[in-house]
Design a protein around this nucleic acid. Structure first.
Length: 881
RNA sequence: GGGCGAUUAGCUCAGCUGGCUAGAGCAUCUCGUUUACACCGAGGAGGUCGCGGGUUCGAAUCCCUCAUCGCCCACCA
């Protein structure tokens, strides 16, 4: 073995070996208990970022651990076609502005080609992290089996009456030329101008002057003394687009304090205005209409001012055809000239933006497909009436799905309780085309399933809906579609429901909630029992990483530099679910040192072992006290790690592992092995450690295993080590050894005594140390001799430096520097005195002795006794100097 | 506007249901070429646990007020 671990020489080859072995493939006919994780599918067009790296690390640790503890672990990889994201990217690559410059067929071909090329990239990159994925089950949201699932889901919802097509106000992304869901809208505070515009005798305040070009009600508060007597009157007034008719209406929505206390409305371009219009019955013909409703109808209040191309319509008069931005500029200019603008003031407010393209969202009214989440239907699985909303809420409320961390449950409830119908149609081309065909009368026909495959209905003269499905529709059935649903094959039977869904907390709504909704609806069983939400990875100063800021860490670069294991540890240790993780390169470097440490520990074992064969099948049989102690510690560490992992406390498990390997095994046990060693035992301990470390550090653990034991094992297929060994006596002995050795070392450091200079030492202890413990002290403390007695009858030898410990006094035979010694003793006395004061205070408190648990009180008493004895000895020492 | 989280050593963070002198890693200081490792070893320094109250025998931990930072939801003509 070389002196340093060269990860680059091993990682890719190891991964290739795992793949070729076939061991990554899960067996659907296995009798072992299943443990399934669906990999949250990265976008096909994406490249690996730290969020993916975090996800892969966490899930891989769980999968490997579960596999090693006797589960049939299945981790299904896949990618997402990422509808709008991919379209945007493909348009960029093709260098065209609008998909309509191509035929639908050609554009989709271009998307397919791009997706296919891209997918290879992300898959290769996932492998770099060491992910134990079952590539034989690789899925893609747009492949045939998943397509079947999508259509099946659509048809079932339709037949249960849970899908409807209707006109609604939606978020229109002008650049994507599509509706997008509320979750794809991001709000940004922008400083714009609030214009005060003359409208007859009224002054209206608006940030959207370009929309003030059409007939409209002037809406005022019904309680506003300034205007309420005018309600019901009408008038004509000048707008930038010419003379229009206005009529005064009262509505509670108006805040008399804001702006001028009145406004005109744009029914088709603002949600509140649209709702107001429908509240007042302006949006449809009324049987017994009032003046306001008549005007609305006659003057065409429901006339669009902005088209789906983002340009002004004929309603804008001479500004027809301009973009909204340009129209705003020119409208203001015209109104200024006409003297209609009375005041302009800066105004900061939230502006809705498209998260995919960054353009401003135009609220528009259009015909879309929706999932009705509030409608009651008969749940085929329970025979009960319910709603999709209720099913989704019950998932967490009734404990079918546990959310980690718990606080996200509240957030989940809040969101589901306010759940709105889900708009699932998109006006883009890349994705699952809505599986609906219309006949000449507009009646809906669904796809027909023949020989397991869905086909267009056989009736002639049908046309398919032009739109595609929201990308989250196919992601929503991911936990079942990856297992072959709607067919209840071996995979579905064996591996459903999934165990854990692990993802970032940013997509709890648009993904997690929707999977719960769809999968429970489709199968009657909730799709996973645990949702683990990892935190977002941010930079060292807590800022979001982004390419534009240049503060991002590229996982591939750091993997190349420090190794995948180090990257994994740095993402997992010190990271709390749901909590942002600040990651800097120094942290990764730190864990690189750890992997190198493990490498060198293995190297030491290899050197000790030579050609001696090791029987790795026989159980660990400690003989000496030292061996008993390390076995005890190893057993405790294994138990602790298992407990942590079972409870999804991965950081805690990593921390325990790290400290056992470095702090206990390397720092103490290997050093002790240099005095006396049984190489086969040492090797066996290492072998346990490598298996223990494997889920966290799959590469280095396996490399070391092969190097030391000379056999090409795949650690993931071996059992996770379990030791049921406890030896409190050995543990206590070495607790003393460690304390005493540390104190001796401190004195050496303080007195500048060279390590090469050996010292004599005499220990007077209350609990006798075993011969082996004494020998260990002699070895680690670099001592020439160690003597031990129980009685302190030689305490008079004050030419020695005496260290006073609770369980022993240690006499170090070194030249005494009186001044230094006085200083040290005074310091010790002060500290012990403080301890005594605090212990006495605690014990003299009647409440403490009465209320605290008995063992705590007894412990305190004992501590006080020891401290008092220590103080006594220290004082005598000081006095004798 | 509503909600959630964070605030602990110079930096990044642990600290689970209240109970040992509040812990790690990195950085820093001193010493060190002891037959795995300088990507190392030994030792040290460094914290009134954001502020102020409260509950309790006992609070970093539970409750309240405030402050700062961050996130989420809703949304303002």
């Amino acid at each position: 073995m070389q002196k340093n671990y060269a990860h680059n020489e091993y990682e890719d080859a190891l991964y290739a070996g795992w793949e070729q072995s076939g061991a990554m493939r899960a067996d659907a006919s296995s009798s072992r208990p299943p443990f399934t994780i669906p990999l949250p599918p990265p976008n096909v067009t994406g490249t690996l970022h730290l969020g993916h790296a975090m996800m892969l690390a966490v899930e891989d640790i769980l999968i490997r651990y579960k596999k090693m503890t006797g589960h049939e672990a299945l981790w299904i990889p896949g990618t997402d076609h990422a509808a709008i994201a991919t379209e945007t990217k493909v348009l960029q690559v093709l260098g065209i502005e609008d998909r309509k410059q191509m035929t639908r067929e050609d554009f989709i071909t271009a998307c397919k080609r791009f997706a296919a090329e891209s997918q290879e990239t992300i898959i290769t990159q996932c492998k770099k992290m060491g992910a134990w994925l079952d590539w034989s089950r690789l899925a893609y949201t747009l492949d045939d089996p998943r397509n079947t699932g999508v259509i099946e889901m659509f048809n079932r919802l339709y037949r249960d009456g849970l899908l409807y097509r209707g006109y609604r106000m939606i978020n229109w992304s002008v650049d994507a030329e599509s509706v997008i869901s509320d979750d794809e809208v991001v709000w940004e505070d922008r400083e714009e101008t609030l214009y005060y515009i003359r409208c007859g005798d009224f002054i209206i305040a608006t940030v959207r002057p370009e929309t003030k070009c059409w007939h409209s009600p002037v809406v005022v508060s019904p309680h506003d003394g300034r205007y309420k007597h005018l309600i019901g009157t009408s008038f004509t007034a000048e707008t930038y687009a010419g003379e229009r008719t206005f009529w005064v209406v009262g509505d509670e929505h108006i805040d008399p304090e804001f702006g001028s206390g009145c406004m005109t409305i744009s029914t088709l371009h603002d949600l509140n205005d649209y709702e107001m219009a429908s509240r007042h019955g302006w949006d449809r013909p009324q049987a017994d209409e009032n003046d306001s409703q008549r005007l609305a109808r006659e003057l065409g209040l429901m006339t669009p001012k902005i088209g789906f191309d983002g340009k002004m319509t004929a309603a804008a008069g001479l500004l027809e055809g301009l973009t909204v931005t340009e129209a705003r500029r020119q409208a203001v200019e015209i109104m200024r000239q006409k003297g209609l603008i009375l005041k302009e003031e800066p105004y900061t407010h939230g502006v809705p933006l498209c998260s995919r393209t960054g353009c401003v969202i135009e609220p528009m009214v259009s015909q879309q497909w929706f999932i009705d989440v509030h409608k009651e239907f008969l749940d085929a699985h329970t025979g009960q009436k319910t709603t999709l909303q209720r099913l989704t809420l019950d998932a967490v409320k009734e404990g079918h799905v546990t959310v980690i961390p718990e606080r996200f449950e509240k957030i989940y409830y809040h969101w589901i309780e306010n759940l709105r119908d889900w708009c699932i149609s998109r006006q883009i081309w890349w994705g699952h085309r809505i599986p609906v065909w219309y006949d000449a009368e507009g009646a809906v026909h669904l796809a027909e399933r023949i020989d397991g495959e869905y086909r267009a209905p056989s009736l002639p003269g049908l046309t398919q809906d032009e739109d595609t499905l929201d990308t989250w529709f196919s992601s929503g059935i991911w936990p079942i579609s990856t297992l072959g649903w709607p067919d209840a094959g071996a995979d579905f039977t064996q591996f459903y429901p999934n165990a854990v869904l692990e993802t970032g907390h940013d997509i709890i709504f648009n993904w997690v909630a929707r999977m719960i909704l769809m999968c429970r609806y489709a199968t009657g069983v909730y799709p996973f029992h645990t949702t683990y939400l990892h935190g977002m990875v941010v930079d060292e100063r807590g800022k979001k990483m982004s390419k534009s800021k240049g503060n991002g860490i590229d996982p591939l670069e750091v993997i190349a530099q420090y190794g995948a294991d180090a990257v994994r540890l740095s993402l997992v240790i010190g990271s709390t679910p749901g909590q942002a993780l600040a990651l800097g390169e120094s942290k990764i470097q730190g864990y690189r040192h750890f992997t190198n440490k493990l490498w060198n520990a293995s190297r030491f074992v290899q050197l000790q072992l030579g050609d001696t064969p090791v029987d790795l099948t026989s159980p660990l049989a400690p003989q000496t006290l030292t061996e008993q102690w390390i076995t005890h510690e190893l057993s405790a560490a294994l138990q602790s790690i298992a407990q942590s992992l079972e409870a999804y406390r991965i950081s805690e498990a990593g921390d325990t592992m790290y400290h056992f390997v470095w702090g206990t095994f390397c720092k103490w046990f290997i050093e002790l092995s240099k005095r006396q060693v049984r190489p086969t035992f040492l090797a066996q301990v290492l072998e346990h450690i490598l298996r223990m470390v494997h889920p966290l550090c799959p590469f280095i653990s396996e490399v070391c295993y092969r190097e030391v034991f000379g056999r090409p094992a795949i650690l993931c297929t071996l059992p996770y080590p379990v030791l049921d060994y406890s030896n409190p006596h050995a543990a206590e002995q070495f607790q003393h050894v460690q304390t005493i050795v540390t104190d001796i070392r401190r004195i050496r450091a303080e007195r500048n005594i060279a390590p090469s200079q050996t010292l004599g030492v005499r220990i007077v202890s209350h609990t006798l140390l075993e011969e082996e413990a004494l020998a260990s002290i002699r070895h680690l403390g670099r001592l020439s001799s160690v003597k031990e007695t129980v009685s302190d009858d030689h305490a008079a030898q004050y030419d020695d430096v005496q260290i006073v410990l609770p369980m022993a006094s240690i006499y170090l035979r070194v030249p005494v520097d009186t001044d230094a010694e006085r200083e040290r003793l005074t310091r010790e006395i002060t500290r012990t005195g403080l301890d005594i004061t605090s212990l006495q205070a605690r014990l003299s408190n009647a409440g403490y002795t009465a209320n605290a648990p008995a063992h705590l009180v007894a412990e305190t008493r004992q501590q006080l006794q020891q401290a008092q004895a220590t103080l006594q000895t220290l004082r005598e020492l000081l006095a004798s100097l």
